[in-house]
Amino acid sequence: MVPISYFLVLAAILFVLGVAGFLFKRNIVTIFMSIELMLNAVNLTFVALSYHLRELNGQIFVFFVMVVAAAEAAVGLAIIITVFKHRESLNVDNVDLMKL
């Protein structure tokens, strides 16, 4: 048996690792994967709290988060392909048109 807070702390650790990847990685595809990692961490909190409250609504929310993540992955990867076509590079430091 494990307290429910262990699951939530694990989700927090995974979320922070996702934030770290988002901040420190320079490859745009890896940054996108870090976003997926953060979404997964949030899904874990949803499922753990669904267990804690004995309610199924949390699992429905996870289902919707997954659908939104799939849609986001499709559009985001299309954007990455377009960026690569124009810049010939996947490094985010080279995509700085809007930087002052």
Binding site: M1, V2, I4, S5, L8, V9, A12, I13, V16, Y51
Partner: peptide
């Protein structure tokens, strides 16, 4: 991490076992 983990750890009772 410490902020999120502390809040989550304090918020939920230790006796709620899985």
């Amino acid at each position: 991490l410490s902020l999120v983990a502390t809040v989550l750890y304090k918020q939920f009772p230790r006796d709620s076992m899985v």
